[in-house]
């Protein structure tokens, strides 16, 4: 039996104050992510996919419902407990990289470990190890401004993985990359998922990116519309076609 990493129950998010005009961004979402899964969340702009990701990654609070990560209810976390949870359990890759431009790649990657009070020696060792695995060892001494978009995202990926998070979240991680870098990054994420057994949950509106996932959740107007699971033997281009077909039917 696989362990459940994320469990979402009856999640709702309403924007706007009580006496103002309210907007229901998420209407009762239920799903779960198992250990080692690579899940994509797809939807058009305004479908609520980013809202959902923000709830899961503790960047925003749900109006009602529960989100459990490794059995821990995160919707109620506050202050230091919230910060510590982010620091130890979650890895996040942003569309615009969010690297600190005044730190070198190595320092950026090592930051989550520094926060946990890991010794300098161990930080160096772990940073080097993760960087080698992601093929960015030569870039460690460089500053973000000296890196290309694809390289930046790899560094961001290394930073998100360095502390062995329970789950890696991605918010349109290929959104700012050219097609070659995007493909490389997605292949890298697949490798990470398969070799390091890291669970990944990624939000995207791009069918190509989504085709790298093992499971895709389609969201429309704040509801889960469909779930698509890639069959064991199904190859990626075939799955890509299936995603495109499904999106086609959605649009109508």
């Amino acid at each position: 039996m696989q362990e459940t990493i994320i469990e979402v129950n009856n999640l709702k998010k309403i924007y706007g104050r009580k006496n103002e005009k309210q907007y229901e961004a998420l209407k009762s979402i239920n799903f779960s992510v198992q250990d080692g899964e690579f899940v994509g969340i797809m939807g058009a702009s305004g479908s609520g996919k980013t809202t959902l990701l923000n709830m899961l990654a503790t960047f925003d609070r749900p109006t009602s419902g529960s989100v459990k990560i490794k059995g821990k209810e995160i919707a109620k976390l506050k202050g230091n407990a919230l910060a510590d949870f982010r620091a130890s359990r979650i890895g996040f890759i942003f569309q615009d990289f969010n690297l600190l431009e005044n730190l070198t790649a190595a320092e950026n990657i090592g930051l989550p470990l520094s926060l946990q009070g890991v010794s300098a020696k161990k930080i160096d060792a772990t940073t080097t190890k993760v960087a080698s695995e992601l093929g960015i060892f030569e870039l460690l001494k460089k500053y973000p401004s000296e890196l290309s978009g694809g390289q930046k995202q790899r560094v961001a990926c290394a930073r998100a993985l360095v502390h062995n998070p329970a789950i890696l979240f991605g918010d349109e991680p290929t959104g700012a990359l050219d097609s070659k870098s995007a493909r490389e990054l997605l292949e890298l994420m697949t490798e990470v998922n398969e070799n390091m057994r890291t669970s990944i949950l990624m939000v995207t509106h791009d069918a190509f990116s989504a085709s790298f996932c093992k499971k895709i959740i389609f969201i429309k107007d704040g509801r889960i519309e469909r779930e698509l699971i890639r069959a064991d033997k199904q190859n990626r281009s075939n799955f890509y076609q299936e995603v495109l077909d499904l999106l086609g039917t959605f649009e109508q």
């Binding site: 005044n102 320092e107 520094s114 020696k121 160096d124």
Partner: peptide, 18 residues
Amino acid sequence: ATLAKKKLNGFTLGQLEF
């Protein structure tokens, strides 16, 4: 120095250096 790898020291030093 190893001090820079403690908590946010690295970040602060990076800010200052810039």
